[in-house]
Design a binder for these strands. Structure first.
Lengths: 240, 240
DNA sequence: TCTTTTAATATGTATAGACATAATAGAAGA
DNA sequence: TCTTCTATTATGTCTATACATATTAAAAGA
């Protein structure tokens, strides 16, 4: 079971050995992994060292520990994946494209209706921004964004000529919680004209709401023509 | 800084106290958190107890630890989210719908072309399945799936009349790695007819490739009309 | 035979001490 | 002044020990 990698600490080696066996299918759900005492002997170390490795696996959800019984490979959670939804500017520039943002509309006003009320509070003030993201000069996607002025008052003095609002917010609101929804729509007349596609062209729409410390910050709708953008999810564990 | 919750262990309390301060914005990126010695005194416990809490935060990526300098709040990684991509049957039944799968096509053959070759190996055998997912009797989505017979030989004796292949695989292939891609397409003639929508209707397409222990298992394309399905991503950390 | 009690067991958490290692501030030297 | 060395500092890892707690197997009793 032991490995021959010398740069790792003992507890990391134990953790990785077991993790690899679980992820490779060598250990299946409900299989028991060796007891702490047994691992102590296998790796010739103390129980605290074993415990650190095995506790880490438990906290990551790969195993379940039961007193008096031992540690067992967990049943993987239902399928989920980590989806990368990067800032558009960063993403494009990383891929070697030039990026541009063209502001179409900017207005400061009071919140109307339930959707805007949820963001800024009933009668609260918000800023609405609409613009086009460009990659190498070509229209890449459309963005409509509402930002609560209560949450980000300094945004009122920013004109966003050239700077995309997403990038600006990244620099002004540290850490946050977000909720995403991804669906397919046909481009409406207005958006189609700006993106230089025909009405009804299948587009990916990403809706995102962001909170900072429980306070709503922004609500965005980004529209990308189906042939210009997709979202890619990395590895994941699986199964109910 | 201390909390008054008695059911938690000391190290959990330390971890949660700090975690809350980071996520709430009370501690910002590059801020230093108290040294281990200081936390020992604040929580009246030993260094190992503090170390367990703080190491856990480091392993979760919330803080960065530097010898001789201290521990600092990390810069959140670029925007990513955990997207829930559940088994369709489980998802619909959980939401109170009846679920049905209608098999349209089933064939066993050898792999042709680079895409199929990547799955089953050049000249390797695979099974191709096409079918319709139904919610409350109505067409909900179309699925085309290739499965490597080398990876899952027992699938050859399964006829999938009624059982969706995804659910069947869930029960036969434990743990796995997957790669997802989500994009928007217009429904083609064949799929449109089966889904009872018009050609070109915007659809969400989910492409998924799955491996077990590095061996390719299955490659799926699922097509959902834009008005019938979306993907929802939960909370996340943020920022480059 | 069935129920209750007891003892054994594996994990959960915590301690104090030890030595290693990386990074730096400051001292010593050129 | 600039470079080099050294001591200090905070974290990284590990050990041996201790007691708590949940669970279960076995013993004791009805």
């Amino acid at each position: 079971m032991a490995d021959s990698n010398d740069t790792l600490s003992v507890s990391e080696r134990i953790r990785l050995d077991i993790e690899r066996q679980i992820l490779s299918g060598g250990l299946k759900p409900d299989d028991r992994i060796p007891l702490e005492r047994e691992l102590m002997e296998i790796y010739d170390c103390s129980r605290m060292t074993v415990n650190k490795a095995v506790s880490e696996l438990a906290s990551r959800g790969l195993i379940v520990r039961r007193k008096r019984a031992g540690s067992f490979v967990a049943h993987p959670p239902s399928d989920s994946t980590i989806l990368d939804i990067p800032d558009i500017r960063l993403d494009l520039e990383r891929k070697g494209h030039t990026y541009g943002y063209e502001l179409l509309h900017r207005s400061v006003r009071t919140a109307k209706g339930p959707e805007e009320g949820a963001l800024a509070g009933k009668g609260g003030r918000l800023i609405e921004l609409r613009g086009i993201h460009r990659a190498d000069g070509q229209p890449f996607g459309h963005e409509r964004r509402l930002v609560s002025l209560a949450a980000v008052p300094e945004i009122e003095h920013e004109d966003f000529a050239g700077t995309p609002p997403g990038t600006w917010l990244l620099g002004h609101v540290p850490w946050s919680q977000a909720e995403h929804r991804i669906f397919a729509v046909g481009a409406d007349v207005g958006i189609a004209a700006h993106l230089e596609i025909s009405e009804g062209t299948p587009c990916l729409m990403l809706e995102r709401r962001t909170w900072l410390n429980g306070v709503p910050v922004t609500h965005v709708w980004q529209t990308f023509p189906g042939d210009r953008h997709s979202f890619i999810g990395a590895l994941t564990r699986r199964q109910a």
